[in-house]
């Protein structure tokens, strides 16, 4: 087994644990590279099947190519797709001009919380990674959220020997993080090896590409000439910029991300 085999086997193990333990389980699919890798891992874990729905929290501010790609993949892979839009908030005029963090909370955190409530999810699979940002580097693989989707990071349960938190109070839910242990380069090497389809936005056009995808008003492409995966890997090996530096919500005051995530953000 090589490095990617080991990462893959561990992720599959986690996905199967989630499927075994949670009656109501869903996978968050942001359309980005990480969650598309997860879709792939799920197909491997369940031998070509996807035994749970995929959830896309749509802020209506997403980059249009993302929505196009989403709908194409959903059809091709016969995915059971739930698209959640927080219409109430939008009708009341919610948007990035109200303040980035306020908007993120209303359209993403709230949106996510509503899906959990409406469908009664016990388990929610998310594609976050430890190397993305500080509060994620401290996450557990199975991470409990209370009835309000809040995270008590000051008192996380022990997690050892792949024995995860599977007992919890009714009304709470568990965030499952199957690719927590991967890093950004692992993701790209795996996409290359497995030939996983991706939205074009990641590849450079006119000297720019997206390194991380989000809402159009708050996501900036980076300067890049990387037009293929090999170029991207080479670029990443030599950069000192952080992956999410193009994501506005990460650049706000210190601990902004921790606060967002405490309230239930991905």
């Amino acid at each position: 087994m090589d490095h990617l085999d080991r990462l893959e086997a561990q992720s599959i193990y986690i996905l199967r644990e989630a499927y075994k333990h949670f009656g109501k389980l869903g996978m968050l699919w942001s359309v980005g590279k990480d969650s598309t890798v997860m879709l792939w891992l799920a197909k491997k874990a369940f031998f070509g099947h996807c035994p749970f729905p995929f959830i896309h929290v749509d802020t209506t501010y997403k980059i249009p190519e993302m929505i196009e790609f989403r709908d194409r993949m959903a059809k091709e892979h016969n995915m059971d797709l739930i698209v959640e839009i927080n219409r109430e908030a939008l009708e009341q005029g919610m948007g990035p001009e109200q303040g980035r963090l306020i908007c993120c909370k209303a359209l993403k955190t709230e949106g996510l919380h509503r899906v959990v409530k409406n469908y009664g999810f016990e388990g929610l699979i998310l594609g976050i990674r430890r190397d993305e940002e500080g509060s994620r580097s401290k996450e557990r693989v199975f991470s409990e959220r209370n009835a309000e989707s809040e995270w008590d990071y000051t008192d996380q349960p022990p997690e050892l020997w792949d024995q995860f938190k599977t007992d919890f109070k009714k009304g709470n839910h568990i965030r499952v993080h199957p690719i927590l242990h991967w890093n950004e380069i692992d993701i790209w090497e795996y996409i290359k090896r497995e030939n996983i389809p991706l939205v074009d936005l990641y590849f450079a056009k006119d000297g720019k590409r997206y390194r991380s995808l989000g809402c159009a008003p708050c996501t900036n492409p980076i300067e890049s000439t990387a037009t293929c995966i090999d170029d991207i890997i080479e670029e990443l090996k030599n950069t000192k910029e952080s992956e999410r530096s193009g994501r506005a919500q990460d650049q706000e005051a210190s601990h902004a991300m921790q606060k967002l995530r405490k309230e239930g953000y991905m």
């Binding site: 430890r130 190397d131 940002e133 500080g134 509060s135 580097s137 401290k138 990071y153 000051t154 996380q156 242990h181 890093n183 210190s254 601990h255 921790q258």
Partner: peptide, 21 residues
């Protein structure tokens, strides 16, 4: 660099484990 939580930095202690590469 590691004690990412606000509480950890304020109190100058490590509360939870971190994994970095």
């Amino acid at each position: 660099l590691l004690d990412a939580f606000e509480e950890e930095q304020q109190q100058g202690i490590t509360i939870d484990t971190t994994q970095l590469q």
